[in-house]
């Protein structure tokens, strides 16, 4: 218990220090220095600086992308995939990001086929749009939609009827997309294997039967946690791994 309190205290201290450091030096300078470190091959330093920026509250897809690249250069494939996935939440259509993520995924040893759900097939555009993009699209349409309805209280012209029909259909599609994307983000239970090789056991105990092994960078789904163990899920497979061998993708985004 004491250890946990101490750990929290140091985390808080580090957070405060990072915010203070960024405020003092200016985030632009930190970013510039981090990029310089990267280009000169000082990847550890670059990673620390990029992480400082994120801890200071900066939230931007390019930052996650840069950290992911740095992790990749450091040979931390799992962490690289984790940050690429985080970057995808914010800029899902970025070509460089998608190319690097595909390349990093290609390096993963395990071939895990995540079957597409019906909604993903029906709303195929969801993967290329971020939640905030969908929100703004829906927000604008929502204003137009209710404005037309409001107008129709006073005057029921024919053109406003047809316009209402068209806007209603688009409003429905975009609204459903926004809802699904929001749901997808809220229920995203994906996690990345962090260690080079992880034993997946039949139960939350190191004496339990070894079911199969997973390798760094594989993306799995987290069902629940018990003590120091996590129950993970793959298509047609389940098993327990130690908590420190996986990292939840969504958990690495700064709290809003």
């Amino acid at each position: 218990m004491r250890k946990i309190v101490l750990l929290h205290f140091f985390t808080l201290l580090l957070g405060m220090f990072s915010v203070a450091y960024c405020q003092e030096t200016g985030w632009e300078e930190v970013f510039f220095k981090a990029s310089q470190d990267y280009q000169k091959g000082r990847f550890e330093d670059a990673k620390k600086k990029y992480q400082l920026l994120i801890k200071s509250g900066k939230q931007n897809g390019y930052l996650y992308y840069n950290i992911a690249n740095t992790c990749y250069r450091l040979g931390q494939l799992g962490e690289a995939i984790l940050y690429y996935e985080n970057a995808r939440f914010l800029m899902p259509r970025n070509a460089d990001l998608n190319a690097n993520l595909a390349y990093a995924r290609d390096q993963v040893q395990d071939d895990i086929d995540d079957p597409s759900s019906f909604f993903k097939l029906a709303f195929f555009w969801l993967d290329s749009l971020s939640l905030i993009e969908l929100f703004w699209s829906f927000a604008v349409l929502n204003l137009v939609f209710w404005a037309i309805l409001l107008r129709r209280i006073f005057s029921r012209s024919e053109w406003s009827y047809y316009l209402f029909l068209i806007i209603f259909i688009i409003w429905g599609i975009i609204g459903t997309s926004f809802g699904l994307k929001y749901f997808e983000l809220m229920t995203d239970d994906r996690a990345v294997i962090f260690k080079k090789e992880v034993d997946v056991l039949a139960g939350p105990n190191s004496n339990d039967t070894l079911l199969f092994r997973l390798h760094e960078g594989s993306i799995i789904h987290l069902d629940r946690r018990e003590g120091g163990w996590s129950l993970i899920r793959l298509p047609n497979k389940r098993g327990w791994v130690e908590n420190n061998s996986i990292a939840i993708i969504k958990g690495h985004l700064p709290a809003e």
Partner: peptide, 19 residues
Amino acid sequence: ILPIYTSIKGVQFDVPLRP
């Protein structure tokens, strides 16, 4: 992999994850 972003332009604005 493709290189990092070094321009401050892209990083300037914070992008919220959700509304």
